[in-house]
């Protein structure tokens, strides 16, 4: 039973490591600021989440697991707020997003000053 939990935990840790790396690669590869945020959000949701689940599996039903869950909740509640604040501030300061190549009607330019 313990070996099964160990393998599951290792799988989750490997998944978390993979998604963290993907987020980092996205942060470097993407062409402009707004698209880079999407790359970073992969690190913050799936990367962090999988890694914390892997650690919780190793900790078992202890206070350590509760603290790990608290860290996870903190990331899930706080990181979207910081991301939203960054995106809003960037748009307000006049940073124009680079939009897709093919033109279409649903693109809007922000009307706020």
């Amino acid at each position: 039973m313990t070996i099964f939990i160990d393998i599951l935990s290792a799988l989750f840790l490997a998944g978390g490591a993979f998604f963290c790396l993907v987020g980092g690669i996205g942060l470097v590869r993407m062409p402009d600021f707004y698209t880079r945020m999407h790359g970073a959000s992969v690190t913050e949701t799936l990367g962090a989440g999988f890694m914390l689940i892997g650690l919780i599996l190793q900790a078992g039903l202890t206070l350590v697991a509760v603290k790990l869950a608290m860290i996870g909740l903190l990331i899930l509640f706080a990181s979207p707020t910081a991301t939203h604040a960054l995106a809003k501030a960037a748009l307000r300061s006049g940073l124009k997003p680079q939009l897709g190549k093919q033109p279409s009607d649903d693109e809007v330019t922000p009307s706020k000053p």
Partner: peptide, 11 residues
């Protein structure tokens, strides 16, 4: 831009 750097800091 400064926002790129801030996003990197947050990561």
């Amino acid at each position: 831009t400064v926002f790129d750097r801030l996003q990197a800091c947050s990561t």
